[in-house]
Amino acid sequence: MEELRRLRHLIIDMDGVLWRGKRPMEGLTDFFAFLRRHEIRFVLATNNASRSRMDYVEQLARFGVTVRPEEVLPSCDATAFYLQQIAPAGARVLVVGEQALRAALSEAGFQVVDEENVDFVVVGLDWGLTYAKLARAARAIWNGARFIGTNPDPVWPGEDGLYPGNGATLAFLERATGVSPIVVGKPEPLMFQIAMQRMGAVPETTAVIGDQLPTDILGGKRAGLRTILMLSGATTPSMLAESPVQPDMVFADIRALTAAWEAALTAPDPKECPQRLR
C-alpha cells in the first residue's frame, strides 16, 4: 500500500496492458478516470513503432478515454529523437517498418530512401516484411550503414495469442551481418528519460507499468523506477516464476491495479495512526 500511495507519475505500456489486439481491457475507462481524479501524471510509452501517437490518441478515444498527444510516446518518435542527437540533418535512412516510422524520421529532417547506399538502417515492426526487404537492409549494413532498432520485443500480444515481435527481425539481421543493433526502445534508458522529462518526474515517485519482463520491467529497473507487471499480456505466471527479472508488484490486469490503488489511497495512513498499546 505504501508503494502505491507515493506514486505520482507513471510510464505505461499499452499493448497487453490497456488492450489486447483490438479489445480494450476491462476497467480501462475506470483506470484513466482514477489517474485524472488523483492527478497522477502519465506517459503512454510503447515499443510499437508501427503506429503514430495520433493513432493511439484516436484508438483510446474510441475506447472512451481522452489523452493528449504529448502523453503518448511510441518508439518511432523516440527513434527519431535519438537520430537527431547523433546524425546530421538530411542523413539518408533505409527503413524496415511501417509508415508511422517513416513519417517520424521524415518529420525529424532525415531522407527516407529505399536504397542500399545510406547512413542508417532503422528497423521496426513491419507488417509487409519480406525476404527482399531483409536482404536490402543486410546489404546496407554490410556497406557500412549504422544499424538501429526501434525496440527489441521478442513477441507482442494479439487477441488470439502471441506474435513474433521486432526483436525477431533484429535477430535475423544481426545473425546475417554480424552487426549488433543500437536499440532505442525499452529496456534502453532513452524512452524512460524522455517520458520523465515530459512529466517533470523524479524516480522516487515514478513507476513503470508493463506486460513484458525483458523490456518494460527490466528497463524500469535499469532506470531506477518501481515496476508493476500486468499478467494480461505477454507474460504468463510460469514465465514470471522462471524469470531472473522480477517486478516490484504484480497484478492480473489494470482493473485489479485500480482497485488495489484506490484501497491504498483510502486506507488510513499507518504513520498517522496512534500506536496500539501492548
Rank of each mutant, 00 (worst) to 15 (best):
L60N: 05
I182K: 04
C76T: 14
F147Y: 12
V67T: 06
V245M: 02
A140T: 07
R23Y: 05
L257G: 03
H9T: 08
R92N: 08
R62H: 12
V155H: 11
S243W: 07
F42S: 10
K133I: 07
V43S: 03
R226N: 07
V202H: 09
I228P: 01
N48M: 14
L28Y: 01
V122F: 00
A80N: 04
F110R: 06
G165V: 07
V67I: 09
D114H: 11
V179N: 03
A264D: 11
H9S: 12
L4E: 07
I11Y: 00
L190F: 03
F172Y: 13
P244A: 09
R136M: 12
I141Y: 06
R139M: 15
A132N: 10
G124M: 08
Q85I: 08
E116K: 09
I217P: 00
A168S: 15
L4T: 05
A256V: 09
L170C: 11
F63V: 12
I86L: 09
Q84P: 02
A87W: 06
V96C: 00
E107R: 13
V245K: 00
C273F: 00
Q246T: 15
V184E: 06
A260T: 10
G27E: 13
R136Y: 01
P244D: 08
K271D: 15
Q111V: 10
P88M: 10
I12L: 13
A176G: 04
E2C: 02
A168T: 14
P164T: 03
T169N: 05
I194G: 02
G161L: 02
P88S: 11
M199T: 10
A108Y: 02
E159W: 08
D160P: 00
V96W: 00
P74H: 06
Q111N: 14
Q193L: 11
S52D: 12
E70A: 09
T266A: 12
G210P: 05
F147N: 03
S232G: 09
A241R: 14
R136I: 09
R136G: 00
D253I: 05
Y163N: 10
L134E: 14
G144Q: 10
K133T: 07
L218K: 07
E242K: 15
A259G: 03
G144F: 11
